[in-house]
Amino acid sequence: MTTFIDYLLGGFSSGAVIALFALALVLVWRSTRIVNFAQVGQAMFTTFIALAVQQSTGSWFLALLAGLVGGGILGLIVYALVLRPVQRLDTSGSIIATFGVLISLQALASMIWGGEPQSFPPPVANNGLEIAGRIWPISWYDVLVYAVTAVLVVALTLLFTRTSLGLSMRASAFNPEVAKLSGIRVNRMLAFGWALAGVVGAVAGVLVAPTASLSPNSFDILLIFAFTAAVVGGLDSLIGAVAFGIGTGLVLALVTGYGEAGDAPIIVLILLAITLVVRPGGVFGRGKSRAV
């Protein structure tokens, strides 16, 4: 029984980070109806920037801040320089363009920082906590990850449901023409969606880096898990992305714990396939089918 609980606790931590990446994918989908496969590449790149700041200043907080700012700016750059020109042509082109951005960012990162995995020091201890005479697979660092995830989810939900900016963003995503005719500066809203996704992705990157290592390809596998979580959650749903992000983390932990670690991604992809067959709109998705 304690082993089972250990697995679940471990799953929660990786699930929280998957949830953040899934949130970033949902934010981009909501604003421009594109699945941004470059999201983890952007996060990797901004995490390298954060690491550079950490190494030169010694401050984790400044590193996080640099990651947030860098993530937002990089999101804007990718949208303005690549996606906006391509999206005028067609949607499938945009999705392929995001792969191009991913590969370019990875190549650029290897050129600047090299391909060797680097370690990112955590701001608080990442050792299992000792409670009731036993060491549990949860650390103060995991607690920080949960807290940041929870704060982001609440803040984003409030932004979308309670503010004029959030309403403008949703309207621009659902019906750009009606939004324009209502006086909303749609292009700005779409760009803001990409910047916001870049910030959330950067947070995910900075949070996950200390638990693994940082290299140009180290987040690739997370893309698959985050994509699964976002799609199963319905792509439009913030809460769906978070619920299934954490769910994916739990599945991964259980499969890895009781079976082979190598099987975990395949099990997740099978779950994705089953969901798409049974509920093509995603579990939290409603109505209309979509064209992905």
């Binding site: 309403l167 949703r170 309207a171 659902f174 009606v178 006086g183 109505g287």
Partner: peptide, 24 residues
């Protein structure tokens, strides 16, 4: 302009659709 066809946004509530027109 009130464009042709159903120009309300189905995913939004009545109030959200209304306020959309004056967010600025």
């Amino acid at each position: 302009l009130i464009p042709e066809g159903r120009s309300t946004i189905p995913e939004l509530t009545v109030e959200e659709n209304l306020h959309l027109g004056g967010l600025w």
